[in-house]
């Protein structure tokens, strides 16, 4: 079972605000799934490696070329920004 402190730590790493009264529910849910992973302990993986790409493709490469986007696409992108200042994205200070 994950401890309350562990759940809070994970939540912070995941950047998800969790209130104290929600911690217990996450403890239960996450621990239940983690228990389910125990089945994997039996799997013998000594003879295999980590696949880099499941369908065995080599790197797909393309030229590093700049290309024009239609001007209205810039507008569409900027219209999605929650807060702007001039042409800039506005956020709170980091510290």
């Amino acid at each position: 079972m994950l401890s309350k402190e562990e759940v809070k730590h994970i939540a912070l790493l995941a950047r998800i605000g969790v209130k104290d009264d929600e911690v217990e529910k996450y403890q239960e849910d996450l621990s239940g799934v983690l228990d389910f992973f125990k089945d994997l302990e039996k799997a013998d993986v000594s003879a295999v490696s980590v696949p880099r790409q499941i369908i065995g493709r080599e790197n797909g490469m393309r030229g590093d070329n700049a290309y024009e986007r239609a001007p209205h696409q810039t507008e569409l992108i900027m219209n999605n920004v929650p807060e702007t200042k001039g042409k800039y994205v506005k956020v709170k200070s980091v510290f």
Partner: peptide, 21 residues
């Protein structure tokens, strides 16, 4: 913390936290 707390539903939060762990 607040954006993701209010923006995501319970299953999404569960999976993000599980993956983070």
């Amino acid at each position: 913390l607040d954006t993701r707390r209010f923006g995501f539903g319970p299953e999404v939060k569960r999976r993000i936290m599980l993956g983070t762990y």
